[in-house]
Design a protein around this nucleic acid. Structure first.
Length: 274
DNA sequence: ATGGTTGGCGCCCAA
């Protein structure tokens, strides 16, 4: 099973790019963030036409919004309301596998919760995420958590850890909070299972730098985590950096995980053999 | 220290 996560930055504007992602990367599941469409405006038929018959979405006008497109039928879907009625989470369950898609608040410009309510909300959102999983799930459950988490936790998740020390997304408090989430629940950061910690790894390049390719000042803001029970099922990890060079791109690129999880048809075959 | 761009919307806001 191939799962990708992508902050598409307007699903309506980038349907053609979504089609390209679907055709070139061939994911079974696509988790989108920043769809920027209310549910009545979500391009459901266009997404189904790409081969994703099972779609779950939660959006609002102009801001935020998340969706999960699946080729595999799911048994259940739900949204957590972690902060402010923002549409920042959606989850689906396929048999015993649960996939959570998050869009963590970016947090504004000033990394001080006293001076900047957006930064305060970002930290609170992360604490609420952590609390929900600690209270409602176990790392022995089969869980995948993906999304734009808006934090680059490790030194080589940014182009210059020193120069971004006080920049929102790489401040000490954010990095510490993210590592606490990973440690306390027992998440596995799939990217760093496959790519050593001393190698630079980015999933986002700012629109503000038109020379982004040359200067390569990226950050790894988009993540795929799995619970410990799935860590041995991860077979490959990639970041589709090439999409950032497409015409009128999203500032984020798709992050890809291949998981050795039996698809429904395969499960049925297995059951018939018994 | 500052500015740079994009998307959605509606005369700016969030990223």
């Amino acid at each position: 099973m191939r799962i990708i996560t992508w902050n598409i930055n307007s699903v309506r504007l980038r349907i053609a790019q979504l089609e390209r992602v679907a055709n070139e990367l061939r994911p079974d599941i696509i988790a989108l963030q920043e769809t920027k469409a209310s549910d009545s405006d979500f391009p459901l038929l266009a997404c189904k036409a790409l081969g994703y018959d099972y779609i779950s979405f939660s959006g609002e006008k102009s801001y935020n919004g998340v969706a999960i497109l699946s080729k595999i039928p799911f048994n259940d879907q739900f949204c957590l309301n972690l902060y402010n009625q923002d549409k920042r989470h959606i989850a689906i369950r396929i048999n015993d596998l649960e996939i959570h898609n998050f869009y963590v608040p970016a947090g504004g410009d000033i990394p001080d919760p006293e001076l900047n309510s957006k930064f305060k909300h970002k930290l609170e959102f992360l604490e609420q995420m952590n609390k929900w999983f600690l209270e409602n799930r176990k790392t022995s459950d089969k869980l995948v958590l993906v999304g734009d988490l808006n934090i680059a936790p490790y030194e080589h998740d940014v182009w210059s850890s020193r120069q971004l020390r006080h920049v929102v997304s790489h401040t000490d408090i954010e990095r510490k909070t993210m590592l606490k989430l990973i440690d306390q629940f027992g998440w596995v950061d799939c990217a760093r299972q496959f790519v050593p910690f001393d190698q630079k790894l980015y999933s986002w390049w700012s629109y503000r730098n038109l020379n982004w390719q040359q200067s390569n000042r990226g950050r790894r803001l988009d993540h795929i985590w799995v619970s410990e029970s799935l860590s041995l099922s991860c077979t490959a990890f990639q970041i589709a950096g090439e999409t950032r060079a497409w015409q009128q791109p999203s500032d984020h690129v798709p992050v890809i995980l291949d998981l050795d999880y039996p698809l429904k048809a395969e499960v049925e075959v297995l059951q018939n053999k018994k």
